[in-house]
Design a protein around this nucleic acid. Sequence first.
DNA 1: CTCAGTGCAAACGATTTGCAGGGCC
DNA 2: GGCCCTGCAAATCGTTTGCACTGAG
Lengths: 133, 133
Amino acid sequence: MHRLDKNMRLTSQRQVILEELRKVKSHPTANEVFDMVRKRLPRIGLGTVYRNLDLLAEKGIIRKLEVGGEQKRFDGDTSPHYHIRCVECNRVEDIFIERSEELEKSAASCCNYQILDHHVQFSGICSNCSTAA
Amino acid sequence: MHRLDKNMRLTSQRQVILEELRKVKSHPTANEVFDMVRKRLPRIGLGTVYRNLDLLAEKGIIRKLEVGGEQKRFDGDTSPHYHIRCVECNRVEDIFIERSEELEKSAASCCNYQILDHHVQFSGICSNCSTAA
DNA sequence: CTCAGTGCAAACGATTTGCAGGGCC
DNA sequence: GGCCCTGCAAATCGTTTGCACTGAG
């Protein structure tokens, strides 16, 4: 685990949630994480999964994605990158293109916000779905 | 109203919802639209508001925003533009910078998706909140 | 007249929360 | 031993939906 707050305990639940999330590249929902983790910790509760995902995201150890659709998704990879979502199957994948600093500059010059961050969200049709159609 | 489908009727509810949405630049949630519309049509139901907002968005007459936070927001302005959300007060405002076609090109070359669209979502602190803090 | 659209209320799905007990530090 | 964290279940919140009725075309 990265660094924990002084008062943040290293419980087995927290550890397993983080391990499982880092294993996959699928940007799972809380429920999917729950299912993954449940195989190793059968008695874990869904509430615990939600609480830990939120906490880990707050600490910057994982990333919480707001990529549209109904459920939030989580990403164990915190390196800067964008995302694309398939409008057919809702799969979410990484887009590793260089973060555009130009974007924040242009935005800063046309509104009076102190800009903190930006994210680019692509949508499209994945190769799987385009062959299926 | 723009153009309607052959089978899409021009009800007063639909008309008022669109009018009210176009009046504001605040990117209201469904509930906020409901409150705005209710002043003119006191007996309208929340379900009707949801149904019409979804329908209008589907037809491309308005835009449905997935900008993070819990509720979806709606934008009566369909011209291409980005958005910024204040992390303090959750206000959402328009960012009228040129749409970057470069982004979609770079994304296309690093994943095998047929790219349909992209949206840039900025986050920051609005002038109101930064003076208040 | 017909059928898309409505009001209403109940249903739903994702997420949050209260609480009593458990286990990390 | 304190108190953060857990499991569990009930509560909450945004949104959707079933149904009988209404009104636009």
